[in-house]
Design a protein around this nucleic acid. Structure first.
Lengths: 319, 319
DNA sequence: CTGAAAGCGCTTACAG
DNA sequence: CTGAAAGCGCTTACAG
């Protein structure tokens, strides 16, 4: 590998001069600049970032943590992040598979810190136990919790309410399928759903999902369907699975049972009937998170949360 | 940040000794080891990888390039890669959005090299113009080309043939929707499709996709549907879109027209009818690529290609 | 405007 | 078994 020393030797100058030119500190003669640029081209030199990082104590890399990659929700968030960060000259180090495992989050963050990462954008986890993090950090897919963390929360209140608004007027009894209520985001949304159901005097039943395979949770939900006229699902992947099973069992959607999804996953528009859902605009979430992180990195340490808007999408799986 | 020097001072030893303990060079007294480990715990010290990388000239990071994240095909490949690489102690630097832009690939690779990356796993691109890459590199989603690059190719020959085998016996005229034939992978697959069609004396017509929005290509394809009894699509995303439009226009699938997808994207099992498709086992592709890269990094520089198997999946969109 | 030197935080020959 | 020193490839005060 060719180093700055090789370039300097070839150009007949010191390494300091080469460095200055590389970093556009423009206190150099045009003549030396030309010599050096010539030498750089000739040797096909490109500077070693690792050495730079060591000195500068920053890496122009940011770490991103997502629970898993398969859900396009997260893929779109990452896209949104990159849209902002790439033009700003940052490279992304992506860790995934954290799921809901707090230890994995911590492990990923430690790895980031060891690599002199400039900042972290992570999905929500219970950070309360860990006050050793010194790098700028933004949390997305979070509940709107008031602490010293910058949190990007989707408007879960409206989202939870929208799930009810998507249902037909004659709805009497709703099954609410949900992830663990120990997750603040889930609680925020489900509480809003329940509040709206109460407001409309609609009965409901809660059913927590817990199986590793979505299809098992879907079967469980559908097997109770005669008792309900609607299922508010965890998200579109669960909704699609439930719909598939309903189709197999000749249960008509929405006549026999209505199904509400969440996330406006591409899948939701391709099913038959298409699934009524709530779009969280993940790309916007990503952009918001990235912009907040850039602010933090630049020294604006205010920790106000951001709430990103949702959109209700009515399709054919509800009356 | 606490450095090795702080630990050394606290433990009353030299930095060299601390370093030895960190790296398990076990020529140290049990007593000094204890002192040092105590000091490490006390200071909550964790070594700076950047400094390590600079000296060692390797980073324990590998770079992954994917065309885009939204397609779960790539998400699963990344999962497969991580399954192998994570236990081996590597962290992933992921660049995406390369699409089919050779310049972006080069730019990403240069960025990787500047960061002392240990190896690269990239989707296929035209590398022929660039012989400056010195890092171990494996290419996936590639055609089976015989050069000095390690290529992981899906069994495109069987895949292309399978598309025809999924069709009913009475099929007479097939529309083949495809990406640019300048891409070797596409050529490999389509040629196999055509060969099998010829073998069965089935007529066909080629139609290249080119619109930024899948739905435009889908409309174009479906508008020709009266002339064909089957469409072999680019992949499941295109197939799902075509199916959706067919449903809207009351064109029956598979009675009026059969549709064949590719990739066994989750979407293909949720549509109605479900889409007949070909599974490339992306996770296995990722694992294979990662294993080959590890071999390269360890010095086994043989450049034999790997061909990963496909599976034909018959569903209801074909007769 | 340019160069010699110190230093970023590590690791590893080289001595002892 | 342990330490002092050199060096990984850069950047930036400090002189001149």
């Amino acid at each position: 590998m060719t180093t700055i020393r090789d370039v300097a030797k070839l150009a007949g100058v010191s390494v300091a001069t080469v460095s200055r030119i590389l970093n556009n500190k423009n206190n150099v003669t045009e003549k030396t600049r030309q010599k050096v640029e010539q030498a750089i081209k000739q040797t096909n030199y490109s500077p070693n970032q690792v050495a730079r990082n060591l000195y500068k104590k920053r890496s122009k890399m940011i770490g991103i943590i997502v629970p898993y990659l398969e859900n396009s929700f997260y893929a779109e968030i990452i896209d949104g992040i990159q849209k902002i960060l790439q033009p700003a000259g940052y490279t992304a180090l992506i860790s995934f598979g954290a799921e809901s495992d707090n230890d994995k989050y911590k492990q990923f963050i430690q790895n980031f810190e060891q690599n002199n990462i400039d900042g972290i954008i992570t999905s929500a986890f219970d950070i309360s136990l860990d006050n050793t993090i010194t790098v700028p950090l933004v949390m997305y897919d979070s509940a709107n919790i008031d602490d010293n963390i910058v949190r990007i929360a989707s408007d879960n209140i409206s989202g939870g309410k929208s799930c009810v608004e998507l249902l037909g007027n004659n709805t009497r009894h709703v099954l609410i399928q949900h992830m663990s209520l120990s997750l603040p985001t889930v609680r925020e949304r489900i509480e809003a759903t329940i509040k709206e159901l109460n407001h409309r005097k609609i009965n409901y039943t809660l059913m927590e999902v817990g199986n590793p395979r979505i299809s098992d949770d879907a079967k469980k939900a559908i097997s109770f369907s005669p008792n309900y006229d609607a299922i508010i699902t965890v998200n579109d992947l669960y909704a699609a699975e439930i719909l598939k099973i309903a189709n197999e069992r000749n249960i008509s959607v929405p006549q026999d049972i209505q199904i509400v999804g969440y996330d406006n996953n591409p899948i939701s528009s391709y099913t038959n009937p298409a699934i009524s859902t709530v779009d969280q605009h993940p790309e916007e979430i990503g952009e918001t998170a990235a912009n907040r992180l850039l602010k933090l990195i630049r020294g604006d340490t205010s920790s106000m949360n951001s709430i990103t808007p949702i959109t209700k999408i009515k399709r054919q799986s509800t009356n």
